[in-house]
């Protein structure tokens, strides 16, 4: 291992190649010559990939693009909530006016308001879907940071300075099963749920 210390994860391949090359003494057989050529090529490839990853402008991704994207998504949730509440304000006003109308138009108005209430529940589903996207973006950010840190040889230092992962309480069943809204076709419908519940009776 270089410097006699613990090599970073990404340097291990190079270290192994170097050790094998050093161990090869005397005349090489044909097989060993092929192996040597392959190992040399592998070492060059590893070095090239490392330098390419290190040259990527990943700081833009973790420092700007992802935080900006999550801020935009938060703003969408906030704005849709505000708009939904304004729609609900208007609906509640209509319901107050309902009493001043004759029975038939009053009923039609209530039916229309009910449909608006039903439609407004989109905001909850939208919010939950966006939360899932934000979670995915944060996971990508962490992975990108880990990969580029490794390419820059920062792994050993990061591992040494990083605090041990916090060990929180185990997830409850409710938390473990909380997956949020499913894509169409991935979840069960209300009719299927009704049938499933009835099967237990």
């Amino acid at each position: 291992m270089p410097d006699g210390g613990i090599a970073p994860e990404d340097d291990r391949i190079e270290a192994v190649v170097r050790q094998i090359l050093v161990s090869m003494t005397g005349d090489l057989t044909a097989k060993e010559a092929v192996l040597l050529a392959e190992l040399t090529a592998l070492g060059r490839t590893v070095a090239r990939v490392k330098s390419e990853i290190a040259a990527l402008q990943v700081d833009d991704i973790t420092g700007s693009h992802i935080p900006s994207a999550t801020d935009e998504l938060d703003a969408i949730v906030e704005n849709t909530a505000k708009a939904t509440n304004e729609i609900l304000d208007a609906c509640e006003l209509l319901e107050q006016l309902q009493g001043s109308l004759p029975a038939e138009p009053a009923q039609r108005m209530q039916d229309a308001v009910t449909r608006i209430y039903e439609a407004c529940s989109f905001q909850d589903i939208t919010g939950q879907r966006i939360s899932k996207v934000v979670g995915a973006l944060k996971a990508i950010e962490a992975r990108v940071d880990a990969v580029t840190g490794a390419a820059n040889g920062r792994v050993a230092a990061a591992q040494a300075s990083a605090p041990a992962p916090a060990v929180g309480p185990a997830l409850t069943q409710g938390q473990a099963l909380a997956n949020g809204p499913q894509l169409p076709g991935a979840g069960v419908s209300q009719e299927e749920i009704d049938r499933l519940l009835a099967s237990f009776d």
Partner: peptide, 9 residues
């Protein structure tokens, strides 16, 4: 919004 069978069960 949890609509997986495992949630209902």
């Amino acid at each position: 919004a949890e609509s997986k069978t495992e949630n209902v069960i």
